[in-house]
């Protein structure tokens, strides 16, 4: 049956004049979609605010840049990449979505991500936590562990040069989830690991990844590398 549409009622996309080659230099195989729907069927957030990955891929392929960049859809995705795993055409859907995130005006990146990333670039961590406060928390948690039987004398080595292992820390673990730090540390202790945490630029998350901000992502990664070079450590544990 023909699709009867009242042209005045709705916004009409003129696909004649779209630039279908708009994303040509994005080599994520988006044009090979056979619209099988596997991605949308497997996506855990399909249907939220009308988001679904197949639609996303098609909009990229049609060149509907503005609609995508302005919509909430790129930010609904959790970047779990299950869609990529099942896509029979090997379309890198999560990378596509990240690509669209990168096109949004940085000031319009969803608040928490944007602010966290800005803080991280400025202070080295998403919380903007000063170095003294960080060291205090670390030492405090270490003392709590030391009171546990079998962990007598336990300390958290900070900035230990030449240690075997450097570990980064998710900001949540020095904020609301300090208990979770203890699991790691107890394991290090039991395994007699020679480890350390940096006192600066210890942030384990990299919201440059999630916001599609390559530049910020590079800065964050570069800081970890710097720490490793400075402390002469070869192995990194990045539990994120």
């Amino acid at each position: 049956m023909p699709d009867v549409i009242e042209p005045d009622a709705i916004e009409i996309t003129d696909i004649n004049h779209l630039n279908h080659q708009r994303f040509e230099n994005w080599s994520f195989s988006q044009d090979f979609c056979v619209t099988c729907g596997l991605c949308s069927s497997t996506c855990p957030v399909s249907g939220i605010d009308n988001f679904d990955p197949r639609k996303f891929v098609r909009m990229i392929s049609l060149g509907l840049e503005e609609q995508l960049v302005e919509s909430r859809w790129p930010w609904i995705c959790t970047m779990c990449a299950k869609c990529e795993k099942v896509c029979p055409m090997g379309i890198e859907i999560a990378s596509l979505i990240r690509g669209v995130r990168s096109l949004r005006d940085r000031e319009k990146v969803p608040g928490i991500l944007h602010k966290g990333l800005a803080a991280a670039i400025k202070t080295g961590n998403n919380l903007g936590l000063p170095q003294d406060d960080f060291v205090f928390i670390i030492e405090d948690v270490a003392e709590e562990i030391a009171e546990e039987p079998g962990f007598e004398g336990f300390t958290a080595p900070i900035d230990k040069k030449g240690a075997n292992l450097l570990t980064t820390i998710h900001n949540k673990l020095v904020n609301t989830h300090t208990e979770d730090l203890k699991h790691w540390w107890r394991i290090f202790h039991a395994a007699k690991e020679d480890w350390t945490v940096p006192s600066e630029n210890w942030e384990g998350t990299n919201w440059g990844l999630f916001t599609g901000d390559d530049k910020a992502m590079k800065i964050m990664v570069g800081r970890i590398v710097e720490n490793m070079e400075k402390l002469e450590i070869k192995t990194l544990l990045w539990p994120e």
Binding site: M1, P2, D3, V4, I5, P7, I10, E11, I12, T13, D14, I15, N16, T35, N50, R54, K55, R58, M59, L62, L64
Partner: peptide
């Protein structure tokens, strides 16, 4: 649903709802 195809003055107008995106297209 199939596209609605109409002959207009200087050619042809095809209107349809794209099933994947839900966009009404021309």
């Amino acid at each position: 649903k199939y596209p609605e195809i109409r002959t207009v003055e200087d050619g042809c107008l095809i209107t349809f709802t794209d099933e994947i995106t839900g966009n009404v297209c021309r």
